[in-house]
Design a binder for these strands. Structure first.
Lengths: 184, 184
DNA sequence: TCCATATGAGACATTGATGTCGCAAATGTG
DNA sequence: CACATTTGCGACATCAATGTCTCATATGGA
C-alpha cells in the first residue's frame, strides 16, 4: 500500500512505543512533542513513521491489544483445570497492565482494537463457563460480572505491584483468592 | 474576588453540569462546542460562567468529588456493623458511577479534587480497618488491596446496572458478597 | 573506511479550539 | 404588561498543535 521511504530502526520504534504508552497513560491528550521528547526522538521522526497523531495512537493500541491476546493464549495448556488456566492468564497479563490502561483511555473506538477486545472477552467468557462448570464460581453469579471482576483484578494487581506492596506472585495469588474465596 | 456580571440560572447550570459529565466521560478531550451543544446552550454561555475550559473541568470535578464525599458520609450511622456501613456506602455511591468515572479521567491533578479524594480514601481505609476488626476481612490482606477492590466494585456495579443485567439492590449485594465471600 | 540512509533540528503554513465582544431575542419577575 | 437581565448567535483575534519540508549530522552495514 504505502511504500515507506524511511525504514524505522528497531531501537527507535521501541523507544517511541514505550514512551507513547507511558506519556499517553499519564495524559490522554498529550502532544506529539511530549511523546517525542520522552522517547528522546525528534518530532519529525514521529511523523515520518506515523503519518498522523491518530496513526500513532491506533498503531500503539493495536500493538497493545495484540500483546494482550498473545499473552492470554500463550499460557493456555490442554488438560489444565479452569483455576490453573486463570492463574496462568493472570501471570501473563498482569505485567501488561500499562497496555491495559492505555487501551482503557485511548482508541476506544478503533475497529481493530474493538475486534481484539471482543476476542479477549470471548476467551474470558469461555473460561468463566469452565470455572462455573468446575464449581469454582457459583452458577448464579452473572457471567459478565465475573468477567468484569477478572478484568478489574488484573488492573488492581498491576497497581499493587507498581506501588510495591506486593510481588508479582503474591498479587497473582491474591487476585485468584479474591475472585473465588473473597477476602474474609 | 470576581464579581460575576451574570448570574447563572439554576436550570442552565444543571444542564451544563450533566452534559459536561456525559460528554467528557465519552471523550475526555471533548470540545467546549460539544459540551454546549449537548447542554442545549450557547458556547458563549459556557465561557460566561466558566471563564476557561479548565475552569469548567475543575468546577465539575470539585462538584463530583463533593457529591461522592457527601454520599459516603450521609449514610454513616453510629452503632452499625462494619458490613452494614459498607452496604450503606455502596448503596449511596454506586448511583454516582458517572461522577466516579469523570474523576478517573479528568482533573486528576487538581489540588482540591486530590484533597477530596484523599479524604474519601481515608474514610474507606478506616472502614477497612473495622472490617478486619470484625472478621469480615482477613487481617493478612493488605488494606490498600481491599480499598482498591471496594473502589473497583463500585464501578463494576454501576456498569452492571447501566448495562441492565442487575438492579441496584442486586448489584449492591453482589458487590458485598464478592468482597467478603468471593464468587464460589 | 566509505556509503547509504535514518535521524534531529528548525522553519513554515494550516487548522481547529479557545476566549472575547456586541447585539437582538427570550425569559422570568414584579 | 413592563422591566431587567440572562441567553443565543455570530464575528473576531489569538494561540497551540499538527503536519510538511529541508539540510546537516549521526549511524550502521559492506
Amino acid at each position: 500500500m504505502s511504500a515507506r521511504r524511511h525504514v524505522i530502526r528497531p531501537a527507535t520504534l521501541e523507544a517511541i512505543v514505550e514512551a507513547a504508552i507511558r506519556v499517553l497513560n499519564a495524559n490522554a491528550g498529550a502532544t506529539m512533542s511530549e511523546v517525542a521528547a520522552q522517547a528522546g526522538v525528534g518530532r519529525a521522526t514521529l511523523h515520518r513513521h506515523f503519518h498522523t497523531r491518530d496513526d500513532l495512537v491506533s498503531a500503539i493500541g493495536i500493538r497493545c491489544i495484540e500483546d494482550m491476546n498473545a499473552a492470554v493464549r500463550a499460557e493456555a495448556t490442554a488438560g489444565q483445570s479452569a483455576v490453573d488456566r486463570l492463574r496462568s492468564m493472570f501471570r501473563a497479563v498482569i505485567p501488561l497492565g500499562d497496555r491495559y490502561s492505555f487501551l482503557g483511555t485511548n482508541c476506544t473506538d478503533d475497529p481493530r482494537v474493538r475486534e481484539g477486545y471482543g476476542m479477549q472477552l470471548q476467551w474470558v467468557m469461555a473460561l468463566v463457563e469452565d470455572l462455573k462448570e468446575q464449581g469454582d464460581v457459583d452458577r448464579d453469579v452473572p457471567s459478565p460480572w465475573v468477567a468484569a471482576q477478572i478484568d478489574q483484578l488484573v488492573w488492581t494487581a498491576w497497581n499493587a505491584i507498581a506501588a510495591g506492596y506486593l510481588s508479582a506472585d503474591e498479587a497473582t495469588e491474591l487476585a485468584l483468592r479474591t475472585l473465588t474465596e473473597g477476602l474474609r
